[in-house]
Design a protein around this nucleic acid. Structure first.
Lengths: 232, 232
DNA sequence: TCATCGTCGATTGTCGACAATCTTGGCGGG
DNA sequence: CCCGCCAAGATTGTCGACAATCGACGATGA
């Protein structure tokens, strides 16, 4: 996609590879939310020692995918409607900020790429590939953060992205299609590429509101009684 | 200050204590920006093994206080004017969002506490205690995040706070007084506690602009030729 | 003199074993 | 029947040693 050939070769440490695998397993649902993650079991499963595994777990904890209690246990993060609300509300603020950052620049490369990524998103939706459509939708929204050139903002987005993906993946597993229509980002693009700052803010906020509602509705359908975070 | 008695007792692990000590040493300037952090040396100095020390370093890396290159070395993060700009611009967005979160609530407890913390800030300024005035100013601004009740937002603030403190501490060491006047937060409080949303946004943005300018001026006075990040 | 390559010291990455702590289940006393 | 205590298992926390990798210095040859 956007891999630069002059970038250094990825000198992956074991920790990084473990984190990648574990993240994939969690987001794919192989290890469901709330499931225990025992260090000794995982290290045996991956055929590595506990050292790198622990560090990989720390990273996933930082990303919000895993929670741990000292001397007691480690689990995949549980789903919670409060979290959904926080994720989407903060994301609204961050994404508006990101777009504001590149508002005056009129970056032609960005404008082109945004349309391209929307085409890619539509392609995966038409293909019926839900798994890929999650990736392409995240890539679509991720572009505004990448194009902002704001490294700290990109870190914040990465932190939100993992959490968001956890909910989307769970939704996909439970309900099959995740629901985005082909034209769901048309007004988004128009607002982002337009000239009306207030309209852009309103459109982003509305876009997020719709996303949050969908996700919250899914969560409520999953476990009506449990409101706050539950362990297993 | 604001320690909740129903919160669990702090079961400190060695990793947490090491991170605290190291953070303190870095922010106090005992280990200046750019200085190397050798795991074996530090583990001997703290009389602990490298395991917990490494995990503490990972945490500080996450906080932006430390940078590392695989198999090569670890250093205290270097100061950079780009970082200052990013820190303050993102902080503007986050702090406005935080205040918006508790805008409609008219939280009396918050309004009281905000004034109290400003009094505490003024007290440390009057006492000429620069070290404490950094703490009280961070505590003052931190209140809006705490009162927002938004856990994810609080995490984001914590991530920014460490970086900010790194620059403020360096400024303090270089120039003695860090510069905030007694009344520097009067208009801030008025705007936050007022009724005019647009005025609030403008005031926060202006407050941050002033802070960023002060910090950037300090950095430029420190090393005029070095614009981007330099190692030692 | 200079470029190139090999070697060596330094530093981080990884490993397996031991210690500290928490939870759970059962036992005894009330 | 219930409550508190205790012991055992499970899990994470910590440790010291070994391996992989990197950067710099010096030898070597043109």
């Amino acid at each position: 996609m956007s891999i630069d050939l002059l970038d250094p070769v990825p000198k992956s440490t074991l920790r990084a590879r473990i984190a990648e695998r574990l993240r994939g397993a969690i987001l794919a649902g192989d290890i469901p939310p709330g499931a225990p993650l025992v260090e000794t079991t995982l290290s045996a499963r991956f055929d590595v020692s506990r050292g790198p595994l622990r560090e990989a777990l720390r990273q996933l904890i930082e990303e919000g995918l895993v929670v741990t209690v000292p001397y007691t246990g480690t689990h995949v993060a549980a789903l919670s409607v409060d979290d959904v609300h926080e994720i989407y509300s903060l994301r609204t603020a961050l994404e508006i900020f990101a777009i504001e950052q590149l508002w005056a620049r009129r970056d032609e490369r960005f404008r082109r790429e945004l349309v391209e990524r929307n085409d890619a998103l539509i392609a995966t939706i038409d293909a019926g590939d839900d798994r890929a459509s999650i990736e392409t939708e995240l890539a679509f929204h991720g572009l505004v953060y990448e194009a902002s050139g704001h490294r700290l903002l990109q870190r914040s987005w990465a932190s939100l992205r993992g959490r968001l993906q956890l909910y989307w993946a769970a939704h996909h597993r439970a309900h099959g299609r995740r629901g985005p229509r082909r034209d769901s980002h048309d007004s988004y693009i128009a607002a982002v590429l337009g000239d009306d700052l207030a309209a852009m803010r309103a459109e982003i906020a509305d876009h997020m509101r719709r996303g949050a509602e969908t996700t919250e509705r899914f969560l409520n359908s999953l476990e009506p009684p449990a409101k706050r975070e539950g362990k297993s």
